[in-house]
Nucleic acid binder design. Structure first.
Length: 202
DNA sequence: CCTACGATTCACT
DNA sequence: GTGAATCGTAGGC
């Protein structure tokens, strides 16, 4: 099953499909272990909930492209757009396990004291890969792009939980956060919600 | 125009 | 566990 076909379906399925995939940029390579799903139609936690703005416009574009935004005055966030054109949806890449290019990642993340903390958070990934606004809209499924996503080993078991950092009443109760159950040492924060088998997730 | 705050991280108690 | 750093954006006036 290709990314393209999964991305045309529900953004939660897309978020699950990206677990185990590789984020590649030149010599840098890491395995995605944690994602979150956001969609505009019925999800108050999504930037797309209130319709198109100049910031979120890529969420409404074709699937498989980068939606990169700046927050807290200092951090960049990387998302992969999902669902059909005209529907605002994206998958936030929250954590990854470093595979290649660790020296460069360490240089880009001087404050990380251990390799486990190199990519264990959405803003850590963009710092390590030096992803910023200029990468907004990039086609992440195109190997010719400056950085892109490749299929990896399938994930055997996943955990799901509530998404991080949402205000009460803004979708904080939706369990649209997903992680590879066998790579929990690389996630941004513990998942305390119950375990779910891959085939049981919608 | 003006203001509050965020899909976070880090240092410190 | 708590608070500071830091600024573009959304939403209200």
């Amino acid at each position: 099953m290709s990314f393209r076909s999964v991305l045309s379906g529900d953004v939660r399925s897309a978020a699950i499909a990206f677990l185990g995939a590789h984020l590649v940029c030149g010599e840098l390579r890491a395995r995605i272990v944690e994602t979150e799903a956001y969609r505009g139609l019925d999800d108050p936690g999504s930037h797309a909930f209130r319709g198109v703005t100049s910031r979120n416009r890529f969420m409404f574009g074709p699937a498989g492209h980068a939606y990169v935004y700046f927050t807290y005055g200092m951090h960049w966030m990387l998302n992969v757009t999902a669902q059909e054109e005209g529907i605002g949806a994206a998958v936030l890449i929250r954590a990854a396990q470093p595979i290649d290019g660790l020296e460069t990642m360490r240089r880009n993340r001087p404050k990380a004291s251990t390799d486990r903390g190199l990519l264990s958070g959405p803003a850590k990934i963009t710092a390590a890969y030096r992803i910023t606004r200029e990468h907004n809209g990039l086609d992440l499924l195109d190997p010719a792009s400056p950085f892109h996503i490749e299929p990896g080993e399938p994930v055997q078991e996943i955990l799901c939980g509530t998404r991080i950092g949402l205000s009460p009443g803004r979708g904080d109760d939706l369990r649209w956060r997903y992680a590879d159950a066998h790579a929990l040492e690389w996630v941004s924060r513990p998942l305390q919600e119950l375990t779910s088998l891959l085939e049981k997730i919608p």
